[in-house]
């Protein structure tokens, strides 16, 4: 099972191909990767191949939208998309990319444009 990843690292997009071994016996409860989600595959890849690999995951059921990624060209929720051979995985929006597949999805973070020059994001989160 081959995954083509495009990851956002150090300010640029970089390709990384990962070949997953057959899943039987990995404790995932599946005989073929088609029974697993993209999120499960990324989790496995971080554990076994690429300790740096960044991905977001919370509810695993399509509700929190945290795992949004571009999968085969379309923005989808990685926890709900079954894997297939040759799948392409990229950050949902390169402009919002923070690290690898993780993109800025905060609902409460102050927009950077509202921050006065010379103040960092952290400083804006001080007591008012």
């Amino acid at each position: 099972m081959l995954m083509h990843l495009t990851l956002f690292r150090d300010g640029e997009l970089r390709p990384l191909d990962i070949q997953l071994p057959p899943p039987a016996g990995l404790g995932l409860g599946i005989d073929s990767w088609e029974g697993a989600s993209v999120s499960t595959a990324l989790q496995y890849a971080q554990r076994v191949f690429e300790p740096n690999l960044g991905y977001s995951l919370s509810c695993r059921r399509g509700l929190c939208k945290l795992c949004a990624m571009r999968i085969d060209g379309e923005v989808k929720l990685a926890c709900t998309v079954p894997l297939h051979d040759g799948i392409r995985i990229e950050p949902a929006k390169p402009k919002l990319a923070l690290h690898d597949t993780v993109v800025e999805l905060s609902l409460v973070r102050e927009k950077p444009k509202r921050i006065k020059p010379g103040r960092t994001l952290e400083q804006t989160a001080q007591p008012q």
Binding site: S58, R61, L63, C64, K65, L107, V108
Partner: peptide
């Protein structure tokens, strides 16, 4: 720990 409004049991 995660994003507010995108983590925790409440959403589920």
């Amino acid at each position: 720990k995660g994003l507010v409004g995108r983590s925790g049991a409440t959403i589920t």
